[in-house]
């Protein structure tokens, strides 16, 4: 009887976890979308810096403004528990994001600060963009180093 009880419980547990397992597709697309917007706007600035695109103060300012805008998005709803790379496909978000939420939030905030510095610098020519680019790259790296799994 006891064994039967366990078996029933196990069956229920398995069924339940199947029933409640979600792919979090919308959340995943939303957060990956914002990274795309970041990369696109960083690309405009970086290409000007590398000399692959002519410097255009207005475009540079708009790109920097967009970075700040993304940094101000409320993130929480895009990162539900169980949407890590061990639980769902198509993400490199590691489970430690949910183990260290404060560190994760702090690293996102660091990006915001770096983006604001870029916002202040962007219309000042490539000589001003250059020094502001480093901290942005640093904030991307710092978060990816800890919280993102390698590709593949």
């Amino acid at each position: 009887m006891k064994i039967l009880g366990f078996a029933t419980a196990a069956v229920i547990a398995v069924t339940a976890s199947t029933a409640f397992a979600q792919d979090f597709n919308a959340e995943k697309k939303a957060r990956q979308g914002q990274f795309r917007i970041m990369a696109f706007n960083l690309g405009l600035l970086g290409d000007m810096l590398k000399g692959e695109r002519e410097y255009d103060a207005e475009m540079a300012q708009a790109a920097a403004d967009n970075l700040v805008t993304v940094s101000n998005l409320h993130e929480a709803a895009m990162w539900p528990e169980g949407s890590d790379n061990m639980s769902i496909d198509g993400t490199r978000a590691q489970p430690n994001i949910w183990e260290k939420p404060d560190e994760f939030a702090a690293k996102w905030a660091d990006f915001g600060k770096a983006a604001m510095a870029m916002q202040a610098a962007a219309s000042g020519g490539t000589d001003a963009i250059g020094p502001a680019m480093g901290p942005i790259g640093g904030s991307c790296k710092a978060c990816h180093e800890t919280f993102r799994a390698p590709e593949g």
Binding site: M38, A39, F40, L42, G43, G46, K50, R92, M133, G134, G137, G138, C140, K141, A142, H144, E145, R148, A149, P150
Partner: peptide, 24 residues
Amino acid sequence: AYYLESGFTPEYDSAGGHMAKVVG
């Protein structure tokens, strides 16, 4: 060379994992 300096790929993705340290 730019990737090794900034951590940015040509698509402006950024280095992660151990490579982020290497870029540093």
